[in-house]
């Protein structure tokens, strides 16, 4: 399915400084339907070019990264279990601390 994946708050530096990625992703690892869990492993394999530890910790994103599915915190949609639909927009954003 077609998805838009965006990185912000400095995470884009891990993908050659490209913030917006329009991609086509199929269900991963025997999933019937693509979920955030499958998308995360796809993103790691296909979009993250350096320092994967700055993006992932264990099987989820590292502390300090907000994940938004269609502008909504993934905590509200089931985190890793969040099902994805055609044309969904997934945003990974690192929290900022500067002032």
């Amino acid at each position: 399915m077609k998805l838009t994946i965006e990185f912000g708050g400095g995470l884009e530096l891990l993908c050659n400084s490209v913030k917006v990625h329009n991609v086509k992703v199929d269900p991963q690892d025997g999933e019937e339907k693509l979920t955030m869990k499958g998308l995360l492993s796809w993103v790691c394999k296909n979009l993250i070019k350096e320092r994967p530890e700055m993006f992932m910790k264990g099987d989820t994103v590292r502390p300090g990264v907000l994940v938004l599915v269609n502008d909504c915190d993934w905590e509200l949609s089931g985190q890793l279990e969040t099902p994805l639909e055609e044309k969904d927009v997934v945003v990974f954003i690192s929290t900022l601390h500067g002032g």
Binding site: M54, G64, V65, S94
Partner: peptide, 9 residues
């Protein structure tokens, strides 16, 4: 943010 980010981030 229950856990702090790694200092490198």
């Amino acid at each position: 943010f229950p856990s702090p980010p790694p200092t490198t981030a």
